[in-house]
Structure formats: structure tokens, C-alpha cells
Amino acid sequence: MTSCHIAEEHIQKVAIFGGTHGNELTGVFLVKHWLENGAEIQRTGLEVKPFITNPRAVKKCTRYIDCDLNRIFDLENLGKKMSEDLPYEVRRAQEINHLFGPKDSEDSYDIIFDLHNTTSNMGCTLILEDSRNNFLIQMFHYIKTSLAPLPCYVYLIEHPSLKYATTRSIAKYPVGIEVGPQPQGVLRADILDQMRKMIKHALDFIHHFNEGKEFPPCAIEVYKIIEKVDYPRDENGEIAAIIHPNLQDQDWKPLHPGDPMFLTLDGKTIPLGGDCTVYPVFVNEAAYYEKKEAFAKTTKLTLNAKSIRCCLH
């Protein structure tokens, strides 16, 4: 018999989150649709729960009410004593943790798909938090293969000092899905179709896995975050240069030392320094102006996964 890495157990509980950011409308629209008619997301033997994560922000069509829901799922915020004085999103995070967690427990949901849009030209993107997770690498390989020839990129946010504390991190297997470009507060049919297909293929993978299909060893190309880059700023902290036209919409493309990065209003080009080629992502993302992030630098690498098969009882 072929030796293989056996994944822990079959997958039982899956959640699909929309509206973690209330103005990213593809996930909101799909989740609302699936709450009314969820036939397309159901798979035999699998509990799939669509869920609106930040209903107040969705109602106002804004990213958040008090603070970013997708950055506060750490033990400090989840452990705060519940009171009306807490920011709305912290209270909501505790409610979500109660419903789908608790985080880092045996009772937490197996998989959470968190649906997002970006204003950046990132196409279909899967966000991975753990480079050693054979199950998710296999799932992402399946999704990428199923979507081809449509490109699907994998963004690895594993980093020693950049801690995200994402909404989906309460699950055993957290999956971020990011599709763009799409303006905030807008629905685009092409973007919706791409996100819908990503979810379909992900659920198909889980179904095949649960039925005992063995997935042979595989490898995927990923883009691992190195650092986030702020806009150049003046002495008052105001933005002093904008994304250069040569960099705009060039997510995932190589940016070499000396290539144009920013452009000042008086026409001066600010190039990339250093001696390493990087791959920019979230270029000129609207939501990241407040976070002082013009783009993120990534490096390209390959992740390998062992063969996996479900432990059938």
C-alpha cells in the first residue's frame, strides 16, 4: 500500500463567511444568496454554514464600524470581559468565536472560507496562513488546477512579526479568498463568478477527501510576504508620492531593483532599492491607505505537500 500522510479526520463542519468587511460585496451577495438557497454549497455528509460576519458594517456598506474585524481574533480580544464599552467588532468577534470556535479547541469548525474583495488587480487569490499544512496545500492545488487556465495565486502570510489574527483563524483550516479588482461597494459579475467557482472547487475537494480519495504528493507556487511598504510621506505625515503608473495593476509581476515604484507630484520617480527582485501584491489597495500600506513585497517559492487521505471509520 502506498505510504501517505493521513489527515486527522474527515471534514464535518464548514463555514463560509461574507461581510467580514461590509463594503466587499461579492461575499456579502453570495452568502445572502446561499442563506436563501444553499443547494449549490451542500455536499453529502458535510455541514456547510453561510454566515454574515459583520452585519452592521454590511448594512452601512462600510469596511467596519469601530475597528477591523479581520485583525482582532487574538486571545487578548477574544478574552476581554464582555461589555457595551467594547468596540462593536470586538464584541462581534467574541460572538463569532462562540459560534464557530472556540479558537484553538477541538470544537472549532474544521474549515472557514472568508470571502473578500480587493481594489487591487490580484485576480483569484487564496490566502494561506501555514506553509506546513498538507491538507490546505492539497486543497489549493486542486482549486488552482480546477480553475486553469484562469490564474489563481496563493498568498502566504506566515511571518515572524506580522500577526494578522484573522476572522477565519478560529477554524482548524483557515482559508482566505480574495478576488479583484473590484471597487468597494460595487458588485461585478465576473468577480462574483470567479469567487463562486473557487468555493465550488473547494467544496468538491472536501467531498472527494471525505469519500476516501487519496491525493498524491503535489507542489504549489506561493508568494510569501516579506514586508509592507508605506507611501513616501512629508514631515507632516502626508502622502508625498503615489503608486507609479508602471507599478499600478502589476500585482504578482516581478519588481526589480531600480524599477519605478512611486511618483511625486513634481514628476520624480522613486525606484525600488535593494538588490532583490520582489513580487508586489495589494498594490494601491483602497482599504490600506489608513493602514499606511502602499503594497506588500513578496518572494516566490514552492511548497510541497505529502499525499493525504481521509481516515475512514
Rank of each mutant, 00 (worst) to 15 (best):
116 H>K: 10
65 I>G: 05
107 D>H: 13
167 T>E: 06
186 V>M: 11
20 T>D: 02
257 P>R: 04
84 E>L: 14
254 P>A: 15
102 P>Q: 13
127 I>R: 13
276 C>I: 11
210 N>V: 09
284 N>Y: 01
59 K>D: 15
151 P>A: 08
209 F>S: 00
42 Q>A: 08
142 Y>L: 00
214 E>Y: 14
75 L>G: 14
68 D>I: 03
45 G>K: 07
152 C>I: 09
103 K>C: 10
224 K>Y: 03
227 E>T: 06
55 P>D: 13
67 C>Q: 10
114 D>G: 03
169 S>L: 05
74 D>V: 07
294 A>K: 01
197 K>F: 09
111 I>E: 01
53 T>R: 05
48 V>I: 09
295 F>L: 06
182 Q>M: 06
106 E>G: 09
171 A>V: 13
21 H>L: 04
244 H>W: 00
174 P>A: 15
58 V>L: 09
303 L>V: 07
67 C>F: 11
56 R>P: 13
236 N>S: 07
216 P>T: 07
7 A>R: 11
222 V>W: 01
23 N>C: 15
274 G>I: 03
313 H>L: 11
50 P>V: 09
248 Q>Y: 01
174 P>W: 14
215 F>W: 07
285 E>G: 09
84 E>P: 07
40 E>W: 03
116 H>I: 03
169 S>D: 10
174 P>E: 08
311 C>L: 12
193 D>C: 12
304 N>Y: 09
89 E>G: 06
160 P>C: 15
89 E>D: 07
44 T>Q: 14
194 Q>Y: 08
176 G>L: 07
229 V>D: 00
257 P>Q: 05
212 G>P: 00
256 H>E: 12
94 Q>H: 11
306 K>H: 13
29 F>I: 11
22 G>Y: 06
216 P>L: 06
6 I>H: 14
303 L>I: 10
177 I>T: 01
121 N>R: 06
128 L>P: 00
277 T>F: 04
200 K>A: 11
152 C>F: 00
276 C>G: 11
24 E>K: 00
65 I>T: 14
283 V>K: 01
244 H>Q: 01
264 T>E: 05
231 Y>Q: 01
93 A>G: 15
120 S>M: 01
39 A>K: 11
71 R>D: 14
27 G>A: 12
211 E>M: 14
232 P>Y: 03
164 Y>L: 10
293 E>L: 15
62 T>S: 08
48 V>L: 05
271 P>N: 12
163 K>V: 09
114 D>M: 04
115 L>F: 03
187 L>I: 11
270 I>R: 04
87 P>M: 11
35 L>D: 11
111 I>T: 03
248 Q>S: 06
267 G>P: 03
144 K>T: 11
127 I>A: 06
209 F>P: 00
38 G>E: 13
208 H>M: 14
235 E>Q: 06
42 Q>G: 12
125 T>A: 09
190 D>Q: 06
265 L>S: 11
285 E>D: 11
42 Q>S: 13
209 F>K: 00
276 C>E: 13
233 R>C: 10
294 A>I: 03
233 R>N: 05
161 S>Q: 12
51 F>D: 02
70 N>G: 08
143 I>F: 00
244 H>P: 01
232 P>A: 03
183 P>F: 01
249 D>E: 05
59 K>N: 12
145 T>H: 12
212 G>E: 04
285 E>F: 03
245 P>A: 04
98 H>W: 14
54 N>K: 04
92 R>Q: 11
306 K>E: 14
12 Q>Y: 08
213 K>E: 06
215 F>I: 06
172 K>L: 04
195 M>I: 04
198 M>P: 03
254 P>C: 09
156 L>V: 12
271 P>M: 09
57 A>D: 04
212 G>L: 04
40 E>C: 04
191 I>M: 06
287 A>I: 07
24 E>M: 04
207 H>D: 15
256 H>S: 13
206 I>K: 00
190 D>P: 03
184 Q>H: 14
71 R>T: 08
171 A>P: 04
262 F>M: 05
3 S>L: 14
77 N>K: 13
303 L>G: 01
44 T>S: 14
175 V>F: 01
111 I>R: 00
154 V>N: 01
163 K>M: 13
188 R>S: 00
260 P>M: 04
272 L>M: 14
215 F>C: 05
27 G>I: 01
117 N>F: 03
182 Q>I: 15
9 E>T: 14
21 H>S: 11
52 I>W: 02
234 D>M: 15
219 A>T: 15
228 K>L: 15
187 L>V: 08
165 A>W: 14
170 I>A: 06
148 A>F: 08
91 R>K: 11
288 Y>S: 13
154 V>L: 04
106 E>D: 15
25 L>R: 08
34 W>R: 01
127 I>E: 04
109 Y>V: 13
135 F>G: 00
21 H>W: 04
75 L>N: 12
118 T>Y: 02
113 F>C: 03
157 I>G: 10
70 N>E: 09
35 L>K: 13
113 F>I: 10
158 E>S: 07
158 E>M: 04
310 C>V: 15
63 R>T: 08
106 E>Y: 09
284 N>P: 02
238 E>D: 14
197 K>N: 15
28 V>M: 11
4 C>R: 12
277 T>A: 15
160 P>V: 07
168 R>Y: 12
220 I>Y: 04
64 Y>N: 10
76 E>Y: 09
108 S>G: 12
290 E>R: 13
154 V>H: 01
120 S>D: 01
18 G>C: 02
276 C>K: 14
119 T>D: 04
149 P>E: 05
